[in-house]
Design a protein around this nucleic acid. Sequence first.
DNA 1: ATTCTGGAAATTTTT
DNA 2: TTTCCAGAAT
Length: 651
Amino acid sequence: MMDILKGLNDPQKEAVTHGEGPLLILAGAGSGKTRALTSRLAYLVKQRKIKPNQILAITFTNKAAKEMRDRVETMLGPEATKGMWIMTFHAACVRILRMEIENLTNNQGRGYNGRFVIYDENDSERLIKDCLLELNLDTKRYAPRAVKYVISAAKNELIDADTFASRTSTYFEEITGEVYKLYQEKLAQNNALDFDDIIMLAVNIFELFPQVLLKWQEKFKYFLIDEYQDTNHAQFRLVSLLAKRYQNLAVVGDPDQSIYKFRGADIRNILEFERDFPDAKIVSLEQNYRSTSTILEAANEVIKHNRGRKKKNLWSEIESGEPIYLYQAENERDEAIFIASEVKRVVEETGRNNRDIAVFYRTNAQSRIFEEVFMNFDIPYMLVGGVRFYERMEIKDMLAYLRVIQNPSDNISAKRIVNTPRRGIGKTSIDRISAYANMMGVSFYEALKNAKDIPGGGGFSLERIASFVDLIESLRSMAQGDLLELTQAVIDRSGYVRMLEKEGTYEAEGRIENIGELLSAVNDFKTAYPDGTLDDFLEKVALIADIDSLEVSENSVTLMTVHNAKGLEFPVVFIAGLEEGLFPHNRSMSDASEIEEERRLCYVGLTRAKEQLYLTCAWVRSTYGAPNYMMQSRFLKEIPSDFIEPVHPGS
DNA sequence: ATTCTGGAAATTTTT
DNA sequence: TTTCCAGAAT
């Protein structure tokens, strides 16, 4: 007891020791939130004797979940978290759905089963494109991406396809409604869920089947939701349903750090928590332990420009430290060179390590020039985000094999690999077989197996199709065995690496290396989960985020978007590209509330810095190779000039 | 069936 | 600047 509360300030203690009933913790940037949360979990287990398996703690990333578990274990030992659910919304819902999704399958046995696959953004965009084509719609006029965005937003609001279609007011919405219906049908046929389904279907089950809900309400007696300001309506509904019975719901967040509106995050969830849970206790953590007061005050000044926000007084006892440095570069290359030389200088003169330093930017496209220049300067760096490992073509191809082996109904994956590498089964054949499959109401893979029955199928080679089916079938016979052997067999017997070797380009070499990395990822998985199955592996891979793999152990400078920086801190921070049109981004400039979101994003960036903060912008920046004159970001101008010291070239 | 070609489009942020 | 795609050539 004593040691759990030791070193906490009064409001932190209050948050930790709060007993039953709803609790809202308003945790400003750097206010020791993570510490308070882990202490609360430890307190519940040790002091109030709550069984770990009755606790559900939701974090924003897998990385945060792991950290939280580690920290509780450091306090109380590994037994304390055994059976405790500490994970993301998506991971928790997948776990629930594996057990419960068959409730949604109709009595003819059609629809989902517990071995569903999870489609990433690319997969689901492809499926939407298929739907558009099937409905004879022009994919130029109705961009799959735009349609997907609207469907995704609907799902985040728990609006199902029929409801959506019945409430349309524009022609585009009408089209989207039709696509939405077909898309859901196809997902069910493929036994596949997209990211939004994971939450929405879990809520659907709880609302449709009260006895299922009751079971889960009885399982979890205590809830902890981190980053509550970035939850969407579906997540809110999920939490409300589960916590309804015992009301032991603690949520933590900071309205000033809400930055995921584009993903459906609804800042009202946190602003109106008191309304949703009237007897909620509210605790505010306002002392910042992270940043110098110069950095903190500058950030406070910026965020003050947002209207309609709850005022708060975040303060720091840390001395004012160095000023904030501002460098106005000629262009993006000059900007990167300045940052690289400053990194070198800081490391040499102040004895800091590369790992103490991070560079943030608004868009992933900005990272390229940093990679180039850092390479020239021999500065080790780690890039977070961009093209993710598991989204690279060669990795997705290999995973598609594994997915078809696991779930033959997965048409997107089956079509992806049937002619990769080339086996002489071309577009015409694929289209014909696909049409046949649709007509017969069977999966694409099933249709391949019966290719000889397809009428008028003289045009394609039954022999080649049969040898592909044989390949998959013989691989499937290994599915229950060793995962590493299976993956190795997929790589060898698909002929994929052979194809790349024959290409012989520099690029192909990189792809072969990545496939090697996939093998070691499988191996790591085997070590971490000795009983893990193919299903488990594919699920893990689907829900992984870039930030999850960020290891501080390597001594490199971190490069990432400001979004990815949420929840992190670094002694030295550079924020690049502070220009109108970039940060705030063009796409947000027409809407006052979106500008406010950009400002919150800027606030998140500023408050990551502990001791030194550099802001940079460029006069000229090229997009698609075309140079543009840029103006300084309004956010720069919102920082009082006495906090800022301009840096000039060569000084 | 596959490869080649030129013209158009593309970049916000992501579980 | 790079990437994507449709249509032509092989």
